[in-house]
Structure formats: structure tokens, C-alpha cells
Design a protein around this nucleic acid. Structure first.
Lengths: 213, 213
DNA sequence: TCAGATGGTAAGTAAGCACTCACTTTTTAA
DNA sequence: TTAAAAAGTGAGTGCTTACTTACCATCTGA
């Protein structure tokens, strides 16, 4: 097998094992065995175990440059179709998480271990999502379509529903004992809640709640 | 120092270190040093490192028997004050997380490492919250106060906002670069969103959205 | 045909790990 | 007062870890 390919294979196995057991919990012996080579070979490609972790970062970084949230729902944004914007973004995220659950685990491990990967993801991805979605919400507030809440709070609320749901699905409750719904339904219902809330709208002759001081 | 006290002290230091670095990432030497004793002393109190982890479980388990979600907002539930129920529960959770951030980290580590602690927390706490809050929502739906959504989905949405916000605050964005709001405000705003959504309610003469098929 | 690049390994090494043992000091209580 | 129990430790033990060394086998192109 060629050097390039072997290197990639080692990297993939390392990512898989790191995501399962964390950085400290994974031994170079295990990684080498999983990749079907000797430890010596592994250390020919990556001088240290740390370097393997950094390589993951490089490998994933390029992946996330294309992962631009604004692209996913560009058309819905243009049409100002709020439902399509939130539902589209939510569904996209849920499916991303579902088809690559390893990455979510890897991120969590790296956040707990305060690894660079977590910071990178934050800077390169999370900030951008907040900026993009926050901007959209601000625009719709100017249109008079949304109530006057700090957009960041709305973003946090929506991302919270989505991410928490994913985290439940592939960390806490993998066999879906508590809630088993399709990604489509989840995205639709969360969007519903975000846009309409759960109280029945009784028209303007409301029972005069909203005791906002 | 008496045996009981020393044992407790070792346990506390162990919890603190496990929450920072995980089970695998913490050495018995470090724990002993933090507790100000020799490793030999540590192993007199806990036969193995694993036993230390289990002891944490026992130590925290009793703590969470009193931590009954229904107690926190019992009075609001009786009054059917939806806002007070959700806001009260949310605020309680946020403050719990803020005053004991170690526990959240510990839980995450144990979930990733598939430790018993995570399963225990799930069974003893998460299930109960879902049951309690789900029941309340179902009741309010029967009252005609809430729209007809699967209550579990609403619970997941709300818990998602709260937990994700806490996770941001003490894992991803500890210096609150992205969003810095008080727990009160967070609980209030999330509750607002859950109950009312973010679209402006234009009364019944609505622009005929809701294209639900 | 053969030098050197390439892909690969068995067998180390030193440090670190969980855990033990033989032993000393302090406290307790009869 | 004293003996036993309790609190405590220094110096290991054997195993595992990240990483190295010295070496083998198979291509490749001049």
C-alpha cells in the first residue's frame, strides 16, 4: 500500500478510536492494530500521538470550510420563508450529526480535554452560524415579522433544541427509549415551537397575560 | 485526621480531578497529592481506582433523590401558571449547573466513557423530568391551553435550550464571548420563546401561513 | 544489476501507571 | 501504663505506555 493511503487509513482509525475512547483512553498500539500496521509504521507517519490529533484537525478543517450554513438555506433566505430557513438548517444539522456521530463525540472529548480542535470548531463554525442566523433574525425583526428579542438568544434556543436532540440520540439515549422521531419531524416540530410557541393563540382578545414589567 | 473525613476528602478531590481530566486522564498519584496523602493511604480507603468512581456514584445518588423537579415548581403547577412552571424549572437548572459546573463535566465524561454514573443519572433524573414535565404539558393540552404537540418533543425542546445554554457557559464559551446574559434573563426568554414563539401574532386575520399538509 | 528509495517490522527502552508491602507514628481505651 | 487499633508512609513490583532502533523485503529507474 502507498504511503499516502496508509497515512490516511491510520488517521481514520485514530479518529474513530479517539471519538470512542478519547485521546488519553486510546493507545498507539490500538490505533496501529486497527490500521493493520505495526506501531513503528505509525510513528513513521506521525512523530507523536499529539501530531495525530493535530492531523485530525487539519483533515477536518478543510471539510468545514465548505460547510457554510448560509449555503444550505440560501434560497429560503432569499424568499424570506422563515419556516424553510429554520427547518432546513435544523434538518441539515440533524442529518450531519446522524451520518457522522463520531465527529460529535470527538468534539465533546476535545472540548473536555480543552484541545485545539474544540476551539477551532467554535471559531470556524459556531461563530459563523450565530452570525448568519442572528443576521437573518435581525432582518426579519426589521421587517416586523419577528418580536423584539435579542437575536443571539433565539439562535441559542434553536441550536439548543437541535444539538441537544442530537446529543440525546447518539450519546445519552442511543436506543431512543425516551423519544423516537425522524429528523424531519424533529426539525419541523422544533421550528414550529420556535416560530409559534406552544400556547394557543386566541387572537387579540387574549387573556391579558404578558405581565412584562 | 479521622478515617471518615479523609475518605471524604479523597473522594472530593477525585471528583474534582475526574471532572477536569476524565477517569483515564487522572492518576491515583494526582488524587493522593491533591488530598494531601500518600498513594498507599488512598488505596487503604479505596481498593481500586474504579471503586473511587463507584463511590462518587453513591455519594451523588443520595443528593439526587431530594432533587425532585416537581418540588421546585409545585406551587406554580397547582396554579397552572405555565410561565412560572417553565421559568422556575429552567432557572433552577441553570443555577444548579452554574454552582456545580464540575458535575456537568463529570456527567459528560462518564457518558462518553459509558460509565454507570451516566446511566444512573439518566434513569434517576432525566426520565423523571420528562415524565413530570410531559405530564404537565399533557394536562394543559387537555385544558385547551397548549397546542397539540407530542409533549415529549416540547420537553426536549425546552430542556435543550436550557442544557445547551449551560453547556455553552461552562464548556465551550466559558468567558461568554458569544452571549452573556443572567440566568434569570435566559430562563425568562427561553420560556417566552417556548410559550409564544418568535413570530408576531397578528390575530386571526393572519397571512394564511401554516401550510401544514 | 544494483543503489537507493519505499513500506514494513520485531524487539527493544525509559518513563509512568495502578497497586502492594513492610514498616512507623499517633490515638484510643482498659 | 500499655497494647492494640487506626492513620500514615517510602520504596518498591510488574505491567503498560509512547516512542526508538536496527533491521528486512520489495520495488524502481539508470
Amino acid at each position: 500500500m502507498t504511503g499516502k493511503n496508509r497515512k490516511l487509513q491510520i488517521l481514520r482509525e485514530a479518529m474513530s478510536l479517539f471519538s470512542q475512547r478519547g485521546f488519553q483512553g486510546t493507545t498507539t498500539k490500538e490505533i496501529a492494530a486497527a490500521a493493520g500496521v505495526s506501531e513503528a509504521m505509525l510513528f513513521k507517519h506521525f512523530a507523536t500521538k499529539q501530531e495525530l490529533y493535530s492531523a485530525i484537525l487539519d483533515h477536518k478543517a478543510c471539510l468545514h470550510d465548505e460547510m457554510d450554513p448560509s449555503q444550505v438555506v440560501a434560497e429560503a433566505v432569499a424568499r424570506k420563508d422563515d419556516r424553510a430557513v429554520f427547518e432546513g438548517l435544523g434538518l441539515h444539522a440533524l442529518e450531519q450529526h446522524e451520518c457522522d456521530p463520531e465527529f460529535q463525540r470527538l468534539l465533546l472529548h476535545s472540548a473536555l480535554e480543552e484541545h485545539e480542535l474544540a476551539r477551532m470548531f467554535w471559531e470556524k463554525f459556531v461563530l459563523r452560524v450565530y452570525h448568519f442566523l442572528g443576521g437573518y433574525i435581525r432582518g426579519r425583526q426589521r421587517d416586523g415579522a419577528f418580536i423584539d428579542v435579542e437575536p443571539k438568544i433565539v439562535v441559542r434556543a434553536f441550536i439548543g433544541m437541535i444539538v441537544h436532540h442530537s446529543l440525546n440520540n447518539n450519546l445519552w439515549d442511543r436506543d431512543r427509549r425516551l423519544l423516537r422521531i425522524s429528523n424531519q419531524k424533529a426539525a419541523r416540530e422544533f421550528t414550529n415551537i420556535l416560530l409559534h410557541g406552544i400556547e394557543k393563540h386566541l387572537g387579540p382578545s387574549h387573556k391579558g397575560k404578558r405581565k412584562e414589567k
